[in-house]
Amino acid sequence: MLGRSPLGPLEYTRRLWLRSWLAAVFVFLYAPIVILVVFSFNDSRRNIVWQGFTTEYYVRAAENASLIEAFTNSLLIAFVSTILSTIIGALLALGLWRFRFPGRAALDGAAALPIVIPEICMGVALLVFFNRVGWPTAMPWPLNLAPIIIGHVAFSFPFVAVVVRARMAGFDRSLEEASKDLGASEWQTFWNVTVPFMKPGLIAGSLLAMTLSLDDFVITFFTSGPGTLTFPVQIYSMVRFGATPEVNAASTVLIAVTVLLTVIAVRWQRPDKEAAKLG
């Protein structure tokens, strides 16, 4: 009898060097985040040596008015731009998936442009654009966030479109025909058959759009003014005066918010939950 069966071609986890490689990858990916979170509880002005546990910097971050303002701005921008880019992206995806029209290929290519052009170019372009059209700068909050929201929608809706289109590629068109055959109008068919099928794509796409908006720095930097700093931009300006645990604390909160949103979304779109409820 053999002591152990021979290695199969896909049994990666039984090879020591591969396991070490895997561990190394995880360390490189997650160690910085773990350190960030751990040091947000560090009782020290500097972020180098562990001095002891404290939640003081969370309190300080919460009391930092400009940080809170920036955080509010970020959440509001993310919320509005996610809704807009989900709608525009989904409509674009549907249009490209469903119809054949002249210029379709050109539109397809143009829609993907914001994904491929460098963010810095897009930032400069938006800056120039808002100057050219003479966009009013002295607007009351929250209207002064409009340029940033427009910028965020501009670069995130193509991502939504890509995700939704990938989802629709698996759609059986006879479902729509069946719906009409059973007496439903175009609108009833769209809401009762097409949208439910599209839902996982919509959720994934909007999550993507929200994450892109929450942590975008470059484009926001070019489109934000003194009263419209977002969270990443505010943290950047704080880091310039030294990375204090306060920055760590604020970042940790952002990470927590993002993770929480993701978990909720994943939970919510799990199909077997609904089935279990009914069965």
Binding site: D172, L175, S179, N192, V193, F197
Partner: peptide, 27 residues
Amino acid sequence: VNMVFQSYAVFPHMTVAENIAYGLKVT
């Protein structure tokens, strides 16, 4: 006229009863 499609085209997000009721509900 009603049709039975080759792929059946049963709505995947509805139960059996909801599928059957669909054509009556929308009208």
